[in-house]
Design a protein around this nucleic acid. Structure first.
Length: 480
RNA sequence: GGUCCCGUGGUCAAGCGGUUAAGACACCACCCUUUCACGGUGGUAUCAUGGGUUCGAUUCCCAUCGGGACUACCA
């Protein structure tokens, strides 16, 4: 076991519970912690918080690791809380021996009854004061009841300590916070022999040497209890940083991103939709570090790891998830990639999910991914691969065209001179020759574009025509 | 209900006692353009409210209101 006293804590971590899915917020925490670890020359580690036996999900850890790997998130160490039961038990028993914790035999019914009474009397709910019945059970009785096979939990005895009016600490992002002490005697060991979050957190982060506990804002209030637990265990108090949580607007109300209602909440949904990983990182960085965008503008092509993450620039508001913003970032990320990278990323994506995909169409898509790419002003119309069937619908054989405005004779004239082998200048020269004045160049190209692609708004027509080839282009031109 | 956090445009936000209150997204207009884009320029729009403190408050204090979180043998 690590002796925390002899080492300077240098760890940063994420501590998800294994539900099988990685939440956007978890990726955000991973991102922030890995920056902090890198910048402070610390370790970045993973702790699986699986002490809730009711919430067991098979293969959950494997599934999460797949996602982390996909995002190139790697850990120096990995801990699993359920494998550490003996450690928590030892600390809990030690506290019992010191009179700082005690066995509690109250059943669920007892506790429900207690809560009802408290509610009825307008008293705060919880296990405290006169309601903490098991505080005073004698050692003999404890031994007897345990021997009898009665179920029990271990509770910290906060009642005997004097915690003062307030417990204060400095949150790395928010400054000084003053909280009333927890007066309840919290459970530190559940009847299944495992600790709940509060106890496991304090022990693990102390033993594992966490320099800064970076976690969601939802933990802010319980920090008082965590400090009391540290005190009880004679551990130095931990350092904390509470991050804002990402919300979403629902009927004019803010609420946390929910994995059931909001597909964006699960990062793999975003990935499956064909967003670039980097866009997800960049979006999270714009949310969590207000000068990221300024840095990105100044360093358009620098790798993300060059960015200096700053704790001072973490906001304290809970931001709303903004899909248009993510989309914009995605466009810019794609625009930075070269054609070879695009093809690589596209192939790594589950392109098989595209409708009616054939080798020929896939080849067209890959070619399309190179159109107007590179150079000073790359095109920015692709958000996510999932959009390809609508964005580049003309790459499929069957297209629907609203041809009401099309001039069949004109298009046939163009079909007659079109040759996919022409270079761009030749192609353009032919078009100019075709339309000295009669139809303006603008109308002519609009007609061609509509007939060939079914759209009024597409990338370079010459490039698209070449990808489709003589046969298809001419067929589409001559059917009006 | 209690406790804690938060409150600058539609969204993300800079600001940290004196500013024409940055910037990004979205929206609109115009410009550029050998097609479509990209890009460029400009525009609409913000300090929740009420009290203080101060020569002066977006900035500091208090109250109100609003939003969020916690209040489990879940994390």
């Amino acid at each position: 076991m690590k002796n925390y006293r002899s080492e300077k804590p240098d760890g940063y971590r994420i501590a998800p519970s294994p539900t099988g899915y990685v939440h956007l917020g978890t990726v955000a925490m991973a991102l922030v912690n890995s920056y902090l670890a890198r910048q402070n020359h610390g370790r970045f580690y993973l702790r699986i918080e699986d002490t809730d036996s009711k919430r067991y999900v098979p293969d959950a850890v494997e599934k999460m690791m797949t996602t982390f790997n996909y995002f190139d998130i790697h850990f120096a160490e990995t801990y699993v809380q359920s494998e550490r039961a003996a450690i928590y038990q030892k600390y809990a028993e030690d506290l019992v021996k010191q009179g700082k914790a005690y066995y509690c035999f109250c059943t669920e019914d007892d506790l429900n009854q207690m809560r009802e009474t408290q509610l009825k009397n307008n008293e705060p709910t919880g296990y405290y004061g006169k309601y903490a019945k098991c505080r005073h059970i004698s050692q003999e009785e404890v031994a007897r009841r345990v021997a009898n096979g009665e179920k029990y939990v271990i509770r910290a005895n906060f009642g005997y300590q004097d915690w003062g009016d307030r417990i204060t600490f400095v949150d790395a992002a928010r400054g000084e916070i003053a909280l009333p002490p927890q007066i309840n005697d919290p459970i530190i060991l559940k009847s299944n022999g495992l600790p709940p979050y509060n106890f496991a957190h304090v022990i693990d982060d102390t033993l594992m040497g966490t320099a800064l506990v970076v976690r969601g804002e939802e933990w802010l209030i319980s920090t008082a209890e965590h400090m009391q637990l540290c005190d009880l265990l004679s551990f130095p108090r931990l350092n904390y940083l509470h991050m804002p949580t990402i919300n979403i607007e629902d009927n004019g109300k803010k609420r946390k991103l929910s994995k059931r209602k909001d597909p964006q909440a699960l990062v793999m949904n975003l990935v499956d939709a064909g967003y670039p990983r980097e866009a997800i990182f960049e979006y999270l960085l714009t949310i969590y570090n207000s000068d990221f965008e300024i840095w990105r503008t100044a360093n358009p092509t620098a790798p993300l790891t060059d960015f200096q993450f700053s704790i001072q620039k973490i906001g304290t508001n809970n931001p709303l998830f903004d899909l248009p913003k993510l989309n914009d970032i995605a466009k810019n990320v794609w625009a930075r990639y070269d054609h070879a990278t695009m093809i690589k990323v596209f192939n790594a994506w589950n392109w098989q999910s595209l409708p009616q995909i054939t080798p020929a169409i896939k080849a067209r898509i890959e070619a399309m991914l190179g159109v107007e790419r590179g150079g000073e002003r790359p095109r920015k119309d692709l958000v996510k691969f999932e959009d390809i069937p609508t964005l580049y619908s003309y790459l499929w054989d069957a297209i629907t065209v609203d041809g009401a405005s099309l001039d069949g004779a004109l298009l046939k004239k163009y079909a007659a001179i079109y040759d996919a082998n022409d270079d761009k200048d030749t192609w353009w020269q032919k078009i100019k020759n075709m339309a000295p004045d009669k139809p303006s160049l603008k109308t002519l190209t609009a007609q061609m574009r509509l007939a060939i692609t079914g759209k009024t708004n597409t990338p370079d027509l010459w490039a698209i025509s070449r990808i489709l080839g003589n046969e298809i282009v001419k067929a589409r031109l001559t059917r009006w």
